[in-house]
Nucleic acid binder design. Structure first.
Length: 288
DNA sequence: CGTATTTGACCCGCGC
DNA sequence: GCGCGGGTCAAATACG
């Protein structure tokens, strides 16, 4: 539906946003360099900004960004998810996945099968995606779901590899890619693809519980200052609006969610649907 | 021993 | 058609 993208904006924010959106929506391959460009990492700034207690656990701000102090580090993109959304994708078997997902790589045995399943000329629909940029020492953020790593690849023009994860829950097709920003190694870029069709696992290595996810934000973000180590801040921005703003941020400690909160509380008129679908754990909390 | 990760091989789309 | 880069598979390995 909204495949259409306007390109006539002139403000930095809008141009940036649209570029990213365009990137996310139209490109089969996510161009992370573009993603970073979109967020305007200045080429002249040192790419190796050390993570210090002072800048860790805080909103990532790029002074060169022409954005508000709560610069959004994240963008989401709903790709007008599959019309059919294959809810039936009982991919307990990999072969099936290959057939249905027909763009996947293949192992020796599946290579035969895959060709038949493919209808030529039919482009693979992309699942909804959300990309996050998170300032963190930890690559793989705990988000309440369980993931199994299924691949890792070196990324061109980046010193850091990209990791590929798949939700371990059967029938759940959600994937996740994680890589570190080449321009700022303290930043982790996480991209979710697809929507979970199941609740958050109750037992997650016994570490992240609903309470963790809900967080206990009593006094603003004071907790940010209390235990600086292994902190991560995450910001999200809602998809298309002309003026995007930070929506939700989370904090992690030692790989686990210790808090989540909204910077400005829920914004009226902002559609959280996609984000909520994809990373519901970020929306769990909320004073009712 | 069951489960998760690593890693080289392979496939695919795209640009030249 | 070929090469490149991204994405995935799956056997081997590591780990609890």
């Amino acid at each position: 539906m909204d495949g259409h993208v306007e390109h006539k904006n002139t403000s930095l924010e809008e141009v940036s946003f649209m570029s990213l959106t365009d990137c996310l929506q139209s490109s089969l391959l996510m161009d992370y360099n573009l993603l970073e460009k979109v967020f305007k990492f200045p080429p002249y700034s040192s790419p190796f900004q050390p993570v210090t207690p002072s800048n860790m656990g805080h909103t990532v701000n790029n002074p060169h960004l022409n954005l508000s102090s709560n610069s959004p580090m994240v963008s989401s993109s709903s790709n007008e998810a599959d019309p059919k959304e294959n809810p039936n994708d009982n991919k307990s078997d990999r072969m099936e996945e290959d057939i249905e997902g027909d763009q996947h790589g293949v192992g020796e045995c599946s290579k035969l099968v895959k060709k038949e399943g493919k209808k030529k000329g039919e482009k693979k629909e992309r699942e909804a995606r959300v990309a996050f940029m998170t300032k963190s020492e930890i690559d793989h953020l705990e988000d309440g779901y369980r993931w199994r790593k299924y691949g890792q690849k070196a990324v061109k023009n980046s010193a850091f590899p990209r990791s590929y994860y798949r939700c371990t829950t059967q029938k759940c097709n959600v994937k996740k890619r994680v890589e570190r920003s080449f321009h700022d190694p303290s930043i982790v870029i996480t991209t979710y693809e697809g929507k979970h069709n199941h609740p958050i696992p109750s037992t997650l290595r016994g570490t992240v519980t609903a309470e963790h996810l809900l967080g206990h934000r009593g006094g603003g973000s004071s907790f940010l200052h209390s235990s600086p180590r292994h902190h991560q801040d995450l910001l999200m921005v809602k998809h298309p609006p002309a003026n995007y703003q930070p929506v939700v941020s989370m904090s992690y400690e030692q790989g686990h969610v210790i808090n989540s909160y909204n910077n400005n509380n829920y914004q009226p008129g902002v559609d959280y649907g996609l984000l909520q679908d994809i990373v519901p754990s970020m929306f769990l909390k909320h004073e009712s």
